[in-house]
Design a protein around this nucleic acid. Structure first.
Lengths: 329, 329
DNA sequence: TCCGTCAACATTAACGTTAACGTTAATTTC
DNA sequence: GAAATTAACGTTAACGTTAATGTTGACGGA
């Protein structure tokens, strides 16, 4: 199963390997006549460029690594889509690794990708505890989905939704609609994207003179349903601000089964605006994250960084969110 | 930014490159003492194995290529998850490429992956027109999600849901519930997975003495909503069998807005059983495809094939589907 | 005519590994 | 105590490219 190499073509064409290389790469120094002949032979033999060898000599693989927690989560997959749009247009391929929300898996994933000599890395970090370590790999890297607390600035490029603004807008809207007992449902400070949403929520609540109510959820998936079915936390609540749409959808279903009317008894706001949200009944009010743009922006930033200016100051791009009012509020 | 190589370690340890290689790869021929010393130096220098170079010499990259139409589609992403589960446990990484349902993009994707010298390829083909061409790459390959019509057997491994059985079960169930005007909503013969579902549907309808009604959908996404809102095709229908859950969900929403009651006026059956399906209200009756298992099976098959037995006869694995009755029927 | 230029090639040396094969010295075997 | 074995290395040659540097011979200008 050994493949055709430049050498095979060279022998067949009675030229040097180098000439074949130049011919196939459209470089100068080959007469049009021989180039044609070489291309013909290459086609005939079914030559396929060996990017591994090329990568070794050029020190560049044209591959970027993407590390996400879970590609099934629509948030991740939609951002990945945005990344793909940019990278594929540039002839880059993505090496995708799932970490299943495991810190050690993230570490191993980054390691593996560096070993594969990816030209750049897009990371959806689980938390900030390890990210500093990755810096010593000195590889172009963009973090997506979270910005660190002001206290610990990171010297790397970052793209994230404006979670603070998003939560504030949502909570203010709920307050304006007359809701008083507005709970935050989701993971706590341990979640890298949760922390800003949670803080934004708390601040907005205080600003409105209301008392924050934190309902902790372990999972950030539809599993919220099970919690929602049995928990007594929702007794005195008239609005729920969920960490993401999946949690909101799980709760929506649970509320339905418990006879809690949405939005009459409890108003429900999600986060992300996954594609599905608008097709639910009732359609989900949610804070839209420009996911595709997030991905495109991350990819663009990375490509720029890969372009060489490694010493440039790192940039942080905060993309605006948008409250999409539908039928659950 | 040039990285530490075996050579650097060798010089520092005053041994040959080969010894370093053996030491770090836990091969025999190195004393425990020197091995320790070498590992220490490697750590100190921050050595990271260069898998590109290794791949060149070993002729194996430990990377498999995955070609899907659209990683945002939950069907694809859940199967990908299954693949990841198996491959990551085996130390394999996936090079993921989206084709956005484009034939030419699929072609280019496969080309690119072969050029990257992936050890194997998992392909979710768009149709069968090009797949034969890929065979000449002589690379371990598994096709997922579709089996060709009996007339054209393919000499390659395949994993697919038993679409024929799935549709039959669903239609028979609808018939048993007294539905008479059961429409099939989805793409037609041009869809590689649609063709078996459509045929299964037609056969089951005829077997029940009912007339097949085919409502053609361009998109296989939530966009079905727009079609459902305006189309007059649903006037005399009392059940809809949708090509997949996304179409079903789009229609569900559209029916709701048009005042068509589900399941009273129209029963609705989806296909795939994406995670979300059970959390809808009403929860979606659907034909479950064992997506994760599909992925795991494909990966296992591929790994087996990569193991060497390239001449073994190709296997086709048909995984059973299951009708999940919920609230839309 | 002689030198310089240039196009069209060939030659050689990398890139960072692994693997086959040598070499040495110590240890075992009878 | 000589031969055989073995552990612990070193040497060399790949793997398939690209890139820097040579080498021709033809051509043009003075």
């Amino acid at each position: 199963m050994s493949r055709v190499t430049l050498r095979d073509i060279a022998e067949r064409a009675s030229v040097s390997i180098n000439t074949v290389s130049r011919a196939l790469n459209d470089k100068s120094g080959v007469s049009e006549e021989t180039r044609k002949r070489i291309v013909e032979i290459a086609d005939e033999l079914g030559y396929m460029q060996n990017l591994v060898a090329k990568g070794l000599v050029t020190q560049s693989t044209n591959v970027i690594g993407v590390v996400v927690s879970d590609n099934v989560n629509p948030y991740f997959s939609e951002v990945i889509q945005g990344i793909s749009l940019v990278t594929q247009a540039r002839g880059l391929t993505q090496l995708l690794v799932n970490t299943w929300y495991s810190r050690s898996a993230e570490r191993e994933a980054v390691n593996l990708l560096v070993q594969h000599r990816v030209d750049g890395l897009i990371l959806f970090p689980i938390d900030w505890s390890q990210v500093d370590d990755y810096l010593r790999y000195r590889i172009p890297m963009v973090c997506v989905g979270a910005i660190p607390p002001c206290s610990e600035e990171k010297p790397m490029d970052m793209v994230a939704p404006d979670d603070f603004g998003g939560t504030t807008e949502a909570v203010e809207y709920l307050v304006r609609s007359g809701r008083k007992r507005i709970a935050y449902c989701g993971p706590g400070e341990e979640s890298i994207s949760g922390v800003h949403r949670l803080h934004g929520y708390e601040r907005a609540m205080k600003a409105a003179g209301l008392e924050p109510i934190f309902i902790r959820m372990e999972a950030i998936t539809f599993d919220a349903y099970r919690f929602g079915l049995t928990s007594s936390d929702f007794k005195d609540i008239d609005a729920v601000f969920a960490f993401n749409d999946m949690i909101a959808i799980g709760l929506l279903r649970a509320f339905g089964e418990r006879g809690i009317a949405v939005p009459e008894d409890i108003a429900l706001v999600g986060y992300d605006d996954i594609q599905l949200a608008r097709y639910l009944t009732p359609a989900l009010t949610t804070v839209r994250i420009p996911k595709e743009e997030l991905g495109r922006e991350a990819a663009s930033l990375l490509i720029q960084r890969m372009g060489g200016d490694f010493s440039q100051p790192s940039v942080t791009r905060l993309l605006p969110t948008e409250l999409i009012v539908r039928e659950t509020t």
